[in-house]
Each structure stands twice: as C-alpha cells, then as structure tokens.
Design a protein around this nucleic acid. Sequence first.
DNA 1: CTGTTAGCGCATTCAA
DNA 2: TTGAATGCGCTAACAG
Lengths: 358, 358
Amino acid sequence: MTSPLDHDHDTLPDDVPGAGERPKSITLKDVARLAGLSPITVSRALHNPKLVKPDTIARVKEAAAAMGYIPNMLAGSLTTKRSRLIAAIVPQLSNSMFAETVQGLNDELSAHGYQLLLSVSNYSRQKEEDLLAAILSRQPDGIVLTGIHHQPGVRKKLLATGVPVVETWDLTPSPIDIAIGFSQERIGEKVAQYLLGKGYRRFASICARDERANRRRLALEAELRLHGVEPVATHMATPPTVLNLGREGLRAILAAGHAPEVVVCSSDVLAQGALIEAQAQGIAVPQQLGIMGFGDFDFAAYTHPPISSVHIDKRAIGVRAARSLIAKIEGRPPAGNVIDVGFELVERATTRTIVRQP
Amino acid sequence: MTSPLDHDHDTLPDDVPGAGERPKSITLKDVARLAGLSPITVSRALHNPKLVKPDTIARVKEAAAAMGYIPNMLAGSLTTKRSRLIAAIVPQLSNSMFAETVQGLNDELSAHGYQLLLSVSNYSRQKEEDLLAAILSRQPDGIVLTGIHHQPGVRKKLLATGVPVVETWDLTPSPIDIAIGFSQERIGEKVAQYLLGKGYRRFASICARDERANRRRLALEAELRLHGVEPVATHMATPPTVLNLGREGLRAILAAGHAPEVVVCSSDVLAQGALIEAQAQGIAVPQQLGIMGFGDFDFAAYTHPPISSVHIDKRAIGVRAARSLIAKIEGRPPAGNVIDVGFELVERATTRTIVRQP
DNA sequence: CTGTTAGCGCATTCAA
DNA sequence: TTGAATGCGCTAACAG
C-alpha cells in the first residue's frame, strides 16, 4: 500500500534539501491527466468510491501513488464547509490535569478522522478570546473550551458562528451549547463535610488563581460557615501551578502565624508542595497537619503519606467532549446538553480523624 | 475595540441556538459592500494596513466589526500558500515529558501568530506515517516530529513536500531537515560510568518499548561491558508509561530470581514505580537497591528518597523547535541544523556509593 | 492609495 | 458511471 510511492522519486524534481523552494504541488488535475480521466472522477474515486467503477478506482490510485499526490484539504474544506478540525483551548498543558483530557479528546477525535488544533490560554480569558478569533478563522467543525465563564461577547460570537461548542471541567444549566464536567460547588461542600466529619475545625486554603478552583474554595467556606466554622487563612497562588507554589503557600500561611489543622489545596500539585514544606519544617502529616488535594493525579497515591484528594475522570471529559461534538456535527442526537462526569472523594493518609484535648 | 461588535445582533439573523443550521458566513465582499469599497481594499486594510489610507482603514474596521466579520483563513491560505499552521506529533501526552515540550512549542508559536495542530502517535511509527498524510493535506508551514526514526519512505515524502521539519528528542548527523535534542548514547554511557563509579556491579533495567529509551539502554550495556560488567536483567514495558509499569517491572525482575544492586529506568515514572515496589517489598532504597530514573520530572526531587535522574530541558526543545521552524519559514538563517540541548545527570538519594563486603 | 482580473485546488450541481 | 461548468473566499499581480 505504501510501496508504490517509492518510485515517485523519478517523477519528482530532485530538490536540494534545505533550500527554501517549495516544489509546486501536484493537484487533482495532474493525477487526472496521468490517469486519463477528469479531475472530478479522480476526486470521487478517492473520497466516494461507490460512485466509480472499480477499474477506474485502481487506475486513479495508481496514478495518485505514482505522483505522490497529497490532497489539499484547504481547498476541499473551502467548498464542503467541513474542515474535520476540532479546536481546543486549555488553560495549561504541562503539570496539569488537562493533558489527560487533551489526550482523551485527541484519541477519540483521531479515531473518527478529526484532527486537533490546540491552544493554551494560561488561565487568561482575554487570551481565550483572542485565540478564539484565530481559531474561528480556520473554520473548525467544533470547539472545546475549558470552563463556563468567558470574556463578555464570546458567547454571542460563538453562537453567531453556529459552530458546536463544548465547555468542559464545569457545569451550568445554560451552556453555550454543551457542558461536560462536574460541579465545583458540590466538591467544595463535600470536602468541607468530609473534613468537618473528621473533626477538623481550623481550615486554611492554598488556592490557584483560577476561577474554578476559587469557586470550590468559596463553596467549601460557605459550608464551613453553615457549621459555625470560619476558615483561618487563604493563600492564593498564581498559575502555572507548580509544586513550589504549594511550598510557598504553606510557608506563607505559617509565617503569618496561622495554625491550621488542615490545609485544602486546589490541586494535588500544590498539596504535594505543602506536604513537602510541612516535612521540611518538621510538621508531621497527618498528625499535626492534614492536607487535602484535588485532581487525584497519578502520584497522589504514592507520596509519603499518600494525599487525600478528589478524583476526576480527566480523560473521560476529553473523550465525551469529542463524542458529543462529533455526534452534533454529524447530525446524530447528542447524549445531552449537560453531562456530569461526577467526582469521588478519595481518602488517603494526609487526612485522619482529629482527636482534640478536652 | 470589541464593543462595536455588541450591536451585531441587530444585523445577524436571530438563530435558535442548538439548531444545526450554520448561518451563511459574512465574507470580505459583504464588508466591502457595506464600506463602499472593493474587497481587495478591505483585505489590505485588515492585513496590510500600510498600503491603505487611515480613513479607509477606520471605515473598514467599523464595517467589519458591525457585521461580525470573521476572515476565512482556508481561502486565504489557499492563495498565499501560507497556513500559519505548525503540526506536531508526540508519542504520548499525559504522564509524559512531551507535554512540556508541547507547551513550550505552543507558547513560542502562539507568540509569533502560528497555531498548533497536535497529534499523538502512541509510539507507533505506522501511526506516525498515517498521521503525516492527514497533516500534510492541511498544508502546514512546518512539522515537528518526535525522534529520528520513521517508517520507510517518510523521509522522502517529507522532503518532496519541501515543508520544514524538526525532529526532536534525538540527534543525528543527517536529519530530514533540523534535529533538536540530545544523544541517547551519551546518556547511556554517562549513566553507566556514573553508576560504575559508585561501585555498582549488578545492573537491571526497566525500559519502555520506545526506540530512544532502548538506545539509551543499549549504550549503557555497551559501556558496562567495556568495564567487564554484564547486566543481569532487563524488563521491557509497553507504553503508555504509567507508574504501575515500574512496579510490575521490578516485581518481575525480583520474581525471576535476580538480585540487582541498581535498576536503571527509562523514565522517572517507572523509577517511582520501582521505588514504591521496593518499599512495598521491604527493600531499602538506596541501601539495598539503587534506582536511576530519566527525565527529571518535577516530582523526582520530592519522592522519598528523591530519585536520581537525567535532567532534560523539555521545554527548551519545544521552544527551539518553534524558533527554528519560524526562522526557516520566514527565510531567516536558522540557528543550525543540529541543536544539542544536552542533559545533566542529577544525583539524588536513590543512588549512593556501594560498600561491599570484602 | 485603490481597483480589476484571475486563479489557488477542490467538490457541488447539473448534464450526459 | 463519467464529465463540464461553476463557485467556495480570498489575495497576487498588475493596472490606474
């Protein structure tokens, strides 16, 4: 299947590699000429074989292979108005939970013949808006965003284009189009309830300057207050989320004179940082300080002690985003407009029942 | 700058969101009509303002904003033969060193007005070749590959298209175009020398079924043999590389009756797995078993004990790939055809000088 | 500084 | 089953 291409070298000009000249491309017309057919027949033989006699298909394939023909999808998409391109914007890629979502998204897209145009917003809505302009000009068949809050006007602009959009990692009753994620609020509440149940009363937070992380934190605090507990300290960390921010966070909280019983972190990466800082300061975890993470990263189960966290099926978000988009693009009934992938609180050894002196 | 768009709602048909119909797009011609100009002037006002009178530019911008005009880059690229699109293929995204390279690549591309088309090969050369066909049809201005070994014919095909190509994470005197990475062989040798210097004599490997990892392993073994040391055991792990593969690897090696003094892993992820398995089996690291990783992941410095590793500037590979590509695309002199980003052996606590009973 | 003409490479529509 | 004509939306090349 690939070998016929091997003698294309005779046909093509021997260009000096490294020189800038792009060889003029071989088009459908060239293949048609070689095969003694019209361009449209070649097009059909390649993309719509049912409409063409087997003989002809063979002739076309041979000619195409012999010439090393590469279809120009820009031209194709220009007429069909279908690009088979899905664009995605994530806040961060390295050191983040989004890498797994992107991998899932890409795997599923790839399996269906779509390709992924990836951008990174660095947690900036303005950047997201700018990226969107560039993205839309490539006529994607679908768009995957992270989060449900965007720059003013973005929703309207997206709606106006009619491109299917999936918002991920969060939930809302009124998505632009489709939302796939989980409730930040329910996580905040659940974590609060869990830790209160363990007997913790003095809470601190290390929270990334990220809208979703912050909503989890606020929901946690609201739930605490319902139970008469007032959080003692919050340290905000500016993304990108790296381990050291967790260390700095705990250091700052302690330096300010706070003595939390437990510190809730908006990411396992920060939690690991806090854990390391605690150990560096000779603070026993969980005996003297509890630590709660988020995301259930692979390493969370293997730190010493392992980090209690909130598990999110990061890959599923990507896979389902791809499926929803493809379903919509291909006119099939989507699985629903708002998909809750849920979450699961995972208790490990950085939190434990508090025993207090009476 | 964005507010003029806000009253586009009057101009656009109120389409029911969720319905499938894509509103017919607003073209340059529409904007030209509204502005009372020719399409080409509008085009110039938007992309080549120097050629147009300030007045006119203002008129054009106003009209474009009022209509919510979104340029169609497919059409534009079709004529200019410039797509401002860079395609990249990585073996894996989650749990991998490549996420950082992709982030660096994307950041640098984005800063120069390029966008990233990302694909994942799952360590399969066949998949790489297939992806390449799809990629080429989108007329990218440049391509970033991982590794220097490809399916037969790939090199020739790429050369025939004339698209600038960067091969990353490895080095070769004869790249397709540009190579940016480091020498697997020198790493294997260096690691061997380092561990031999520490007194280790009984070596085992846990190695991903990945061509580069394997070459590092072979180079290590060659260097060992030069010093009269024969490795005792090798366990091959099939990607994707996840922590548990490291556990299984060490378990298998020990179960086979081998008693290595040190186990060399092709990734810190595997090394962490091996570390955890050792601890689970009550084997003291580094006292009874040394462990050597690769990649110097963020977590490597923070495991217990921290993992000795080989540091690679993962992000720099991406950034320099972007720069080289852009330089070449824009006709500027590239920094060189083969760029060695080097590596650094980082000694931590999973390896230490061996003291042997006489 | 602005406009006219032409064509990028392909697939849709209609015809044979 | 195959082909001819046409246009997708834009910009290069050449006027003026």
